[in-house]
Design a protein around this nucleic acid. Sequence first.
DNA 1: CGCTGGATTGAGTCCGGTCAAGCCTTGTGG
DNA 2: CCACAAGGCTTGACCGGACTCAATCCAGCG
Lengths: 214, 214
Amino acid sequence: MTLAYAPSSPAATTALADVMERLGLRMNFAKDEEIFCQDEEADLTYIVVTGAVRTTRLLSDGRRQVGSFYYPGDLVGLETGDIHRFSAEALSDCVLLVVKRSALKTFAGDEAVDRAIWEATRRELERTQEHLLVLGRKTACEKVASFLMDLAEREGGEQISLPMGRQDMADYLGLTIETVSRMLTQLQGASVVEFEGCRRFRVKRWDALERLAE
Amino acid sequence: MTLAYAPSSPAATTALADVMERLGLRMNFAKDEEIFCQDEEADLTYIVVTGAVRTTRLLSDGRRQVGSFYYPGDLVGLETGDIHRFSAEALSDCVLLVVKRSALKTFAGDEAVDRAIWEATRRELERTQEHLLVLGRKTACEKVASFLMDLAEREGGEQISLPMGRQDMADYLGLTIETVSRMLTQLQGASVVEFEGCRRFRVKRWDALERLAE
DNA sequence: CGCTGGATTGAGTCCGGTCAAGCCTTGTGG
DNA sequence: CCACAAGGCTTGACCGGACTCAATCCAGCG
């Protein structure tokens, strides 16, 4: 069986995938199904094979923060300590490779695996720090522009698809769905992007998008 | 020479400190002096010995995000790849242990050093994720309350000192100095905390502070 | 004692949130 | 294949929390 890893995945992850392939399990999750839960013990590690995953954190009054989105080739649930600090849910129907941490630990001597995990953690930290800047110091419009740009850069094609709904975008960016919607309309009005349906778009003026995203 | 590590520092860091003590250099930095710079090559790693450090990120128009604050025992400048994604500056006059990464790499086989670096990175990621939640989904009042609570928990004593000014707090929390100031006044008015001068405070009602911080 | 830079306070504005209505898409069953 | 329902998305009116700009206060220091 061959996995369709996204081009963004570093070669290092392949070694890990091989190990997980041997030790692990393939699992299917339906859209919105819970993969693991906040405050739950973290003894499994996951790689996305197909579909996409979001991690979320809930405040007691229902406010929600989306931590990150994960695509084919990405490691999920590694970034935490012994207890998951975020929940993970399937953004769409998806397939994951699952392996016990203890099983991975027996491979701790395997340098390629070590490095793959290390690399994944480092990238996770970098992404989180980038996210921090967006949440702390950007306007609603800039937030949405940054988000579209990230997606566009990740996919690379002409037509870019949004695997998540407006609520997920809003909770990722620290906004409301209404504001996200308004900003999308505004960006379209300025001919920066163009939507075909609410789940597909293309970039019309790349320079303008970059400038808005800073 | 003995280092006065904060209680929050895990024992693992001590092994790393020992190595850095042997391989590295002690350096003094004056308040507001730059330790390393955004977009600069990252070939050094630092441990705070005395004083405190902030990491910052600048947008082209001058908006600033403070990434984190570092206290005695904390590792700085490890979280990045080959290029620093944040600048680091001395919050106060301070002493740091500095070592070349290449020198550390020759100790890569040393498990204690490995683990210390790994632990530091993991904690950094957790702190950043917590920060994310604060920036994305909390009100100004909750942000300030969370911040004071973090400080209070870290220090543990009755009297807690703020090593940073209002602008640094504001840039850490994604607010303006005026809003930070207003929230502090408000928290004082509600008898949640009490300030003696603008750099020292004590918690009067822990439960209220906890509730505000969520 | 006055000087200086940081902190506080106040008044007014605006961005993004809230609440509510309407629209579009998607899927389902007749 | 169409009708309809349901959920998600968009739009509008209004509101309020945080920002801006400006004046003042205060602490630390020469």
